[in-house]
Protein backbone atom coordinates (compact mmCIF):
# COMPACT_ATOMS: atom_id res chain seq x y z
CA UNK A 1 0.00 0.00 0.00
CA UNK A 2 2.90 2.33 0.63
CA UNK A 3 4.52 1.89 -2.74
CA UNK A 4 5.78 5.26 -3.99
CA UNK A 5 4.59 6.13 -7.51
CA UNK A 6 6.12 9.57 -7.89
CA UNK A 7 8.59 11.48 -5.82
CA UNK A 8 9.21 15.19 -6.25
CA UNK A 9 12.18 16.69 -4.55
CA UNK A 10 12.65 20.47 -4.37
CA UNK A 11 11.09 21.00 -7.79
CA UNK A 12 11.22 24.59 -9.06
CA UNK A 13 9.89 25.89 -12.35
CA UNK A 14 10.78 29.31 -13.72
CA UNK A 15 8.90 30.67 -16.74
CA UNK A 16 9.88 33.96 -18.39
CA UNK A 17 12.08 34.85 -15.40
CA UNK A 18 9.13 34.33 -13.06
CA UNK A 19 9.30 31.72 -10.35
CA UNK A 20 6.09 29.71 -10.77
CA UNK A 21 6.80 26.68 -8.61
CA UNK A 22 9.16 27.07 -5.67
CA UNK A 23 11.00 24.04 -4.25
CA UNK A 24 8.05 21.70 -3.97
CA UNK A 25 8.68 18.29 -2.48
CA UNK A 26 6.00 15.66 -2.31
CA UNK A 27 5.52 11.98 -2.81
CA UNK A 28 2.51 10.21 -4.23
CA UNK A 29 1.88 6.69 -3.01
CA UNK A 30 -0.37 4.00 -4.41
CA UNK A 31 -3.84 4.45 -2.97
CA UNK A 32 -3.35 8.13 -2.11
CA UNK A 33 -5.73 10.86 -3.15
CA UNK A 34 -3.85 14.12 -3.01
CA UNK A 35 -5.61 17.38 -3.78
CA UNK A 36 -3.73 20.53 -4.65
CA UNK A 37 -5.54 23.72 -3.78
CA UNK A 38 -4.38 27.29 -4.03
CA UNK A 39 -5.26 30.72 -5.40
CA UNK A 40 -5.08 31.58 -9.11
CA UNK A 41 -1.56 31.77 -10.40
CA UNK A 42 -0.26 29.62 -7.57
CA UNK A 43 1.46 27.26 -9.99
CA UNK A 44 -0.92 24.33 -9.55
CA UNK A 45 -1.22 23.47 -13.22
CA UNK A 46 2.50 24.01 -13.79
CA UNK A 47 3.31 21.61 -10.97
CA UNK A 48 0.96 18.99 -12.40
CA UNK A 49 2.50 19.45 -15.84
CA UNK A 50 5.97 18.86 -14.47
CA UNK A 51 4.78 15.54 -12.99
CA UNK A 52 3.29 14.65 -16.38
CA UNK A 53 6.56 15.50 -18.11
CA UNK A 54 4.95 18.24 -20.22
CA UNK A 55 6.75 21.02 -18.35
CA UNK A 56 10.43 20.72 -17.60
CA UNK A 57 11.47 21.50 -14.05
CA UNK A 58 14.11 24.24 -13.83
CA UNK A 59 15.69 22.57 -10.84
CA UNK A 60 15.00 19.70 -8.48
CA UNK A 61 14.17 16.15 -9.41
CA UNK A 62 11.07 14.19 -10.31
CA UNK A 63 11.29 10.44 -10.26
CA UNK A 64 8.46 8.23 -11.42
CA UNK A 65 8.15 4.53 -10.73
CA UNK A 66 9.59 2.71 -13.77
CA UNK A 67 6.87 1.66 -16.18
CA UNK A 68 4.24 3.80 -14.45
CA UNK A 69 1.21 4.43 -16.67
CA UNK A 70 -0.27 7.88 -16.14
CA UNK A 71 -3.88 8.66 -16.91
CA UNK A 72 -4.33 12.39 -17.47
CA UNK A 73 -7.63 14.21 -17.31
CA UNK A 74 -7.03 17.73 -18.66
CA UNK A 75 -9.07 20.75 -17.63
CA UNK A 76 -11.20 20.80 -20.75
CA UNK A 77 -11.51 19.33 -24.18
CA UNK A 78 -11.76 22.31 -26.50
CA UNK A 79 -12.18 20.59 -29.80
CA UNK A 80 -12.12 22.70 -32.95
CA UNK A 81 -15.62 22.63 -34.42
CA UNK A 82 -14.06 21.94 -37.79
CA UNK A 83 -12.85 18.51 -36.67
CA UNK A 84 -15.61 15.90 -36.81
CA UNK A 85 -15.10 13.35 -34.05
CA UNK A 86 -17.27 10.77 -32.33
CA UNK A 87 -16.86 9.62 -28.74
CA UNK A 88 -16.01 6.14 -30.02
CA UNK A 89 -13.25 7.44 -32.27
CA UNK A 90 -11.81 9.67 -29.58
CA UNK A 91 -11.58 6.67 -27.26
CA UNK A 92 -10.07 4.46 -29.96
CA UNK A 93 -7.34 7.03 -30.63
CA UNK A 94 -6.12 6.32 -27.11
CA UNK A 95 -5.22 2.84 -28.30
CA UNK A 96 -7.77 0.67 -26.47
CA UNK A 97 -10.01 -1.86 -28.22
CA UNK A 98 -13.74 -1.46 -28.61
CA UNK A 99 -14.58 -3.59 -25.61
CA UNK A 100 -12.16 -1.76 -23.36
CA UNK A 101 -13.52 1.59 -24.52
CA UNK A 102 -17.08 0.50 -23.86
CA UNK A 103 -16.20 -0.72 -20.40
CA UNK A 104 -14.43 2.52 -19.48
CA UNK A 105 -17.31 4.64 -20.78
CA UNK A 106 -19.80 2.52 -18.85
CA UNK A 107 -17.76 2.94 -15.68
CA UNK A 108 -17.91 6.72 -15.90
CA UNK A 109 -21.59 6.62 -16.82
CA UNK A 110 -21.48 7.75 -20.44
CA UNK A 111 -21.77 4.44 -22.32
CA UNK A 112 -24.93 5.67 -24.01
CA UNK A 113 -22.91 8.38 -25.76
CA UNK A 114 -20.63 5.95 -27.61
CA UNK A 115 -21.72 7.07 -31.08
CA UNK A 116 -22.41 10.72 -30.24
CA UNK A 117 -20.31 13.54 -31.61
CA UNK A 118 -17.87 14.98 -29.08
CA UNK A 119 -19.14 18.43 -30.10
CA UNK A 120 -22.61 17.66 -28.78
CA UNK A 121 -21.55 16.71 -25.25
CA UNK A 122 -22.27 18.86 -22.22
CA UNK A 123 -19.49 20.01 -19.89
CA UNK A 124 -20.13 17.17 -17.46
CA UNK A 125 -20.27 14.56 -20.20
CA UNK A 126 -16.98 15.80 -21.61
CA UNK A 127 -15.30 15.47 -18.22
CA UNK A 128 -16.62 11.93 -17.89
CA UNK A 129 -15.40 11.12 -21.37
CA UNK A 130 -11.92 12.40 -20.50
CA UNK A 131 -12.00 10.36 -17.31
CA UNK A 132 -13.03 7.25 -19.26
CA UNK A 133 -10.21 7.83 -21.66
CA UNK A 134 -7.68 8.01 -18.81
CA UNK A 135 -9.30 4.97 -17.21
CA UNK A 136 -8.99 2.87 -20.37
CA UNK A 137 -5.22 3.10 -20.06
CA UNK A 138 -5.36 1.21 -16.73
CA UNK A 139 -3.32 3.92 -15.06
CA UNK A 140 -1.18 3.46 -11.97
CA UNK A 141 -1.42 7.20 -11.39
CA UNK A 142 -4.40 9.35 -12.23
CA UNK A 143 -3.72 13.06 -12.70
CA UNK A 144 -6.71 15.38 -12.87
CA UNK A 145 -6.66 19.12 -13.54
CA UNK A 146 -9.85 20.63 -12.16
CA UNK A 147 -11.98 17.66 -13.20
CA UNK A 148 -15.27 19.27 -12.18
CA UNK A 149 -14.98 22.38 -14.32
CA UNK A 150 -18.23 23.22 -16.08
CA UNK A 151 -20.13 20.61 -14.08
CA UNK A 152 -23.16 21.54 -11.95
CA UNK A 153 -22.91 21.20 -8.19
CA UNK A 154 -24.55 17.77 -7.86
CA UNK A 155 -22.54 16.51 -10.78
CA UNK A 156 -19.37 17.74 -9.08
CA UNK A 157 -20.05 15.72 -5.95
CA UNK A 158 -20.81 12.66 -8.07
CA UNK A 159 -17.61 13.15 -10.05
CA UNK A 160 -15.40 13.35 -6.95
CA UNK A 161 -17.18 10.32 -5.60
CA UNK A 162 -16.41 8.48 -8.81
CA UNK A 163 -12.75 9.44 -8.58
CA UNK A 164 -12.62 7.91 -5.12
CA UNK A 165 -14.30 4.71 -6.30
CA UNK A 166 -11.90 4.46 -9.21
CA UNK A 167 -8.97 4.80 -6.82
CA UNK A 168 -10.34 1.77 -4.92
CA UNK A 169 -10.98 -0.27 -8.06
CA UNK A 170 -7.71 0.44 -9.85
CA UNK A 171 -5.71 0.70 -6.65
CA UNK A 172 -3.96 3.66 -8.20
CA UNK A 173 -2.65 6.95 -6.86
CA UNK A 174 -4.59 10.13 -7.58
CA UNK A 175 -3.36 13.69 -7.67
CA UNK A 176 -5.75 16.44 -8.62
CA UNK A 177 -6.20 20.17 -8.67
CA UNK A 178 -9.46 21.53 -7.41
CA UNK A 179 -11.16 24.78 -6.57
CA UNK A 180 -14.17 23.06 -5.07
CA UNK A 181 -12.71 23.02 -1.59
CA UNK A 182 -15.74 21.88 0.36
CA UNK A 183 -16.61 19.10 -2.09
CA UNK A 184 -13.15 17.77 -2.44
CA UNK A 185 -12.34 17.63 1.24
CA UNK A 186 -14.51 14.58 1.83
CA UNK A 187 -12.88 12.63 -0.99
CA UNK A 188 -9.31 13.50 -0.16
CA UNK A 189 -6.63 11.91 2.00
CA UNK A 190 -4.19 14.73 1.83
CA UNK A 191 -4.48 18.37 0.86
CA UNK A 192 -1.59 20.44 -0.37
CA UNK A 193 -2.09 24.17 -0.27
CA UNK A 194 0.13 25.66 -2.93
CA UNK A 195 1.11 29.27 -3.40
CA UNK A 196 4.29 28.88 -5.45
CA UNK A 197 5.69 26.97 -2.48
CA UNK A 198 3.82 24.47 -0.32
CA UNK A 199 2.05 26.67 2.27
CA UNK A 200 0.81 23.78 4.26
CA UNK A 201 -0.23 20.22 3.75
CA UNK A 202 -1.99 17.54 5.73
CA UNK A 203 -5.34 15.94 6.42
CA UNK A 204 -8.36 17.95 5.30
CA UNK A 205 -9.73 18.41 8.81
CA UNK A 206 -6.40 19.69 10.14
CA UNK A 207 -5.56 21.97 7.30
CA UNK A 208 -8.51 24.32 7.72
CA UNK A 209 -7.10 25.31 11.13
CA UNK A 210 -3.60 25.87 9.78
CA UNK A 211 -2.59 29.56 10.03
CA UNK A 212 -0.91 29.40 6.61
CA UNK A 213 -4.13 28.12 5.06
CA UNK A 214 -6.19 30.84 6.71
CA UNK A 215 -3.71 33.43 5.52
CA UNK A 216 -3.97 32.21 1.92
CA UNK A 217 -7.72 31.70 1.70
CA UNK A 218 -9.00 34.04 4.40
CA UNK A 219 -10.96 33.22 7.51
CA UNK A 220 -14.28 32.97 5.66
CA UNK A 221 -13.19 30.00 3.57
CA UNK A 222 -11.53 28.26 6.50
CA UNK A 223 -14.67 28.62 8.62
CA UNK A 224 -17.00 27.47 5.89
CA UNK A 225 -14.84 24.38 5.44
CA UNK A 226 -15.03 23.64 9.13
CA UNK A 227 -18.85 23.61 9.07
CA UNK A 228 -19.17 22.01 5.69
CA UNK A 229 -19.52 18.36 6.47
CA UNK A 230 -22.75 18.32 4.66
CA UNK A 231 -23.98 15.45 2.58
CA UNK A 232 -26.86 15.40 0.19
CA UNK A 233 -29.43 12.78 1.05
CA UNK A 234 -29.79 11.75 -2.55
CA UNK A 235 -27.91 11.95 -5.80
CA UNK A 236 -28.79 12.56 -9.42
CA UNK A 237 -27.54 10.56 -12.34
CA UNK A 238 -26.56 12.24 -15.61
CA UNK A 239 -30.17 12.50 -16.76
CA UNK A 240 -31.24 14.28 -13.61
CA UNK A 241 -33.07 11.30 -12.13
CA UNK A 242 -32.70 10.70 -8.41
CA UNK A 243 -30.64 7.63 -7.62
CA UNK A 244 -29.75 5.82 -4.39
CA UNK A 245 -30.48 6.91 -0.76
CA UNK A 246 -33.47 9.08 0.07
CA UNK A 247 -36.83 9.24 -1.68
CA UNK A 248 -37.98 11.59 -4.38
CA UNK A 249 -39.98 13.49 -1.77
CA UNK A 250 -36.82 14.15 0.22
CA UNK A 251 -35.25 15.38 -2.97
CA UNK A 252 -37.91 17.99 -3.62
CA UNK A 253 -37.79 19.10 -0.03
CA UNK A 254 -34.08 19.72 0.04
CA UNK A 255 -34.21 21.48 -3.29
CA UNK A 256 -36.85 23.75 -1.79
CA UNK A 257 -34.50 24.58 1.05
CA UNK A 258 -31.72 25.25 -1.39
CA UNK A 259 -33.87 27.65 -3.37
CA UNK A 260 -34.85 29.50 -0.23
CA UNK A 261 -31.27 29.90 0.85
CA UNK A 262 -30.24 31.35 -2.49
CA UNK A 263 -33.15 33.78 -2.37
CA UNK A 264 -32.26 34.95 1.07
CA UNK A 265 -28.53 35.34 1.13
CA UNK A 266 -28.30 36.47 4.72
CA UNK A 267 -29.81 33.22 5.90
CA UNK A 268 -27.66 31.03 3.69
CA UNK A 269 -25.09 30.19 6.34
CA UNK A 270 -27.52 29.16 9.12
CA UNK A 271 -29.50 27.05 6.64
CA UNK A 272 -26.33 25.28 5.76
CA UNK A 273 -25.28 24.45 9.29
CA UNK A 274 -28.87 23.51 10.15
CA UNK A 275 -28.65 20.99 7.39
CA UNK A 276 -25.50 19.72 8.95
CA UNK A 277 -27.19 19.00 12.26
CA UNK A 278 -29.90 16.78 10.84
Amino acid sequence: MNEVLAELSKVSVTLNARLIVDRVSLSIKRGDIITIIGPNGAGKTTLIKSILGIQKATSGSISLQPGLVIGYVPQTLNLETTLPLSVERFMALGGCDRKGCQKALARTGVAHLMTASVHHLSGGEKQRLLLARALARQPGLLVLDEPAQGVDINGQAALYDLVRQLRDELNCGVIMISHDLHLVMAATDKVICLNQHVCCSGFPEDISHDPAFIETFGTAVAESLAVYHHHHNHRHDLHGNVIGGGSAIDGTLSEGTLKKSTLDDAEAAPTCSGHHHD
Binding site: G53, I70, Y72, P74, L77, L79, L83, L93, R137
Partner: peptide, 17 residues
Amino acid sequence: WRGLLMSTIHEELARVE
Protein backbone atom coordinates in the same frame (compact mmCIF):
# COMPACT_ATOMS: atom_id res chain seq x y z
CA TRP B 1 -1.86 9.65 -38.87
CA ARG B 2 -2.83 8.63 -35.34
CA GLY B 3 -0.21 10.84 -33.70
CA LEU B 4 -1.01 13.82 -35.92
CA LEU B 5 -4.71 13.50 -35.22
CA MET B 6 -4.17 13.06 -31.50
CA SER B 7 -1.88 16.07 -31.17
CA THR B 8 -4.43 18.11 -33.14
CA ILE B 9 -7.24 17.11 -30.79
CA HIS B 10 -5.39 17.73 -27.54
CA GLU B 11 -1.69 18.46 -27.59
CA GLU B 12 -1.00 17.88 -23.91
CA LEU B 13 -3.04 14.71 -23.68
CA ALA B 14 -1.13 13.45 -26.72
CA ARG B 15 2.18 14.26 -25.03
CA VAL B 16 1.22 12.37 -21.89
CA GLU B 17 0.27 9.40 -24.03
